[in-house]
Amino acid sequence: MQIIHLDPKNPPPLPKIALTIGNFDGVHLGHKTMLYALKNMASQQHLHTAVMIFEPQPREFFTPNNPPARLSNLAEKSAIIKKLDIDYLLVVDFNDEFRSLSALDFTQLLKKLNANHLMLGDDFRFGHDRLGDKNFLQNQGFIVDNLTTICHQNARISSTQIRHALSLGDLTTAKMLLGQDYSIKGTVVHGDKIGRTLGFPTANISLSRLKPALKGVFGANVLFFNQNDELIKPCDLTHSHHKGILGIHPNSLLGAVNIGTRPSVHGADYRLEVHFPDFDGNLYGLTAQVIFLHYLHDEKKYADLSTLQSAIGNDIKAILDWQKAVK
């Protein structure tokens, strides 16, 4: 898959494409159904496939101080779409200039991109005047198919529904709608090292989003990758005798996760921190994929560091007990 950061004033020359457009946050089962339909249609008409997405997502642009929770960052989204064998991922910088495009301006951009056939959701609208829809595109000479809403248990599968499930710690519903366990992937970076002073060192993992879709304390399995995105086996992560506890997922380590703003230490920004029981090693610079499997509780504000330390110990014990019960 070729990733193109699109300059609307100078679009790249592309072969004839079948195109779909949207945020594709989380790339859930509804999105995947759309992409499978796009591929099938493109194959029948001998077209290449392309997906157009926006960074930042429009609602993040319009409300940066109170953004919606984000299911997947650009790298995560790209990785999932690549696995579905899409030919081109067109990443649009959603800014003041782009948002000011009229519906007619946008259709001119699609023509320059050699878009021949469009596959869109039934609620798709575009242009700063919101005049763009299926009929508008057809009047401009495009072939347009609308994919009807995909439902699960009589409810529309949507990123909003998944965000709601995750906000409640309902990992089971999120998994059903995504088609896989919810996970976050990022680089292990340096943090405040408060956990280390409490006797529970953590790996701080970059979120690369304004606001994560879940918060609280979780049991997770964590996979590690090198700079070439090659999986690293747990036994190769450290030369120490403390190699951690294997997770349920193959080649993963069990982790006790806190994701949120850390109210007990007066945190302000969102952090993703993972403690690995019985592990001693240097993880900085590696990429970690945190697979959320068990919700323990929401973030809590403890009276002092001593109380926090005791609570962390209890949470780790509960997560160890959970994995023993399900493994």
Rank of each mutant, 00 (worst) to 15 (best):
L246V: 01
A220N: 08
L177W: 00
T197D: 03
K215G: 14
V189D: 08
P234K: 00
I157D: 04
G244F: 02
L168H: 12
N228S: 14
H241F: 08
L177R: 02
R163H: 05
M176G: 00
F225E: 02
L171Q: 07
G244D: 06
H241S: 15
L177T: 01
G179Q: 05
G186Q: 08
I194G: 05
S183R: 04
S158F: 04
K243Y: 02
K233S: 14
P234D: 00
S240H: 01
N221T: 11
G169C: 03
L178A: 03
L237H: 02
L246D: 03
L210S: 15
G244S: 06
I232E: 04
I245A: 07
G260N: 10
G260R: 01
L166P: 07
G179N: 10
L223V: 05
I259M: 14
L166G: 12
K185D: 01
S240K: 07
A203E: 05
I248R: 12
I232M: 05
I248Y: 12
K243M: 02
L171E: 01
T238E: 07
L168I: 00
L178E: 04
L246A: 09
T173C: 09
H164T: 14
L171K: 04
D269Q: 11
I248L: 13
N258I: 13
R156S: 13
A268F: 11
Q227E: 15
L178W: 01
N204H: 13
F200M: 02
T173Q: 15
S208M: 11
I194K: 14
C235L: 10
C235W: 08
P234Y: 00
E230R: 11
T187D: 12
Q161K: 12
G255C: 02
G219S: 07
S183A: 15
G169W: 10
S183L: 00
T172Q: 12
I162P: 13
G195W: 10
H190T: 12
K233L: 13
G247Q: 06
M176R: 15
D229N: 14
H266R: 10
A174G: 13
D229S: 14
A220I: 03
P263S: 09
G219T: 12
L214F: 04
T197R: 13
S240E: 07
E230Q: 14
I232S: 07
R156L: 11
I232Q: 05
D236G: 06
D236T: 04
L198F: 06
P263T: 02
C235T: 11
P234L: 00
H241C: 09
P212F: 01
Q227M: 12
D170H: 11
L178G: 04
L198K: 04
H239C: 10
L214D: 02
G169S: 03
L246R: 07
N228G: 13
R196F: 00
